[in-house]
């Protein structure tokens, strides 16, 4: 916030008038709920992934690729990736709202959306390729 003295026009407007169009989009509760729901969904998905990693850690390429190509594994992996980055997006948004002010706020929020969105997509495309694509001979 800047330290310049306020103009008369700023003062004459009511608090409600100032807040209109700048503040709540009436979506706060929804945001809070999806944060909790995605967190709760991540608990069993992460538990499954940890067990899988105990079985797979240190295995060679063929074994891991075979594991990722199985339909149930691919489904749960895609669900884990999607839910993780959705939860990350929702959580990072709150952090940006709290700590990034002024002009930087909107672009930072957009960057969070693009970043988490692209990472989630990369994960899902990779899972789909493992599950549906023909195994690459080179790479």
């Amino acid at each position: 916030m800047n330290a310049t003295s306020p103009t008369h026009r700023t003062v004459m407007r009511s608090q409600l008038g100032r807040a209109r169009g700048l503040g709540s989009g009436h979506s706060g509760t929804g945001h809070w709920i999806v944060e909790r729901v995605s967190a709760a969904s991540l608990l069993p998905l992460s538990g499954w992934f940890v067990i899988q990693m105990f079985r797979l850690g240190g295995e060679d390429y063929e074994q891991v690729a075979k594991w990722g190509g199985k339909p149930v594994n691919a489904t749960l992996l895609a669900a884990l990736v999607a839910t993780s980055f959705y939860h990350a997006e929702v959580g990072l948004q709150v952090i940006v709202d709290d700590y990034v002010h002024g002009k930087a706020h909107a672009p930072t929020k957009l960057l969070v959306k693009i970043g988490t969105g692209l990472l989630g997509l990369l994960g899902i495309v990779s899972v789909l390729k493992l599950a549906l694509g023909r195994p690459a001979s080179k790479g």
Binding site: V64, G68, S84, F85, L119, G120, L122, S126, K129, A136
Partner: peptide
């Protein structure tokens, strides 16, 4: 989140070959 990003790169490497 940063770690999960690296995890996704691992998954992409697995898918690539």
């Amino acid at each position: 989140t940063g770690g999960s990003a690296l995890g996704v790169f691992w998954l992409a490497a697995l898918a690539k070959g």
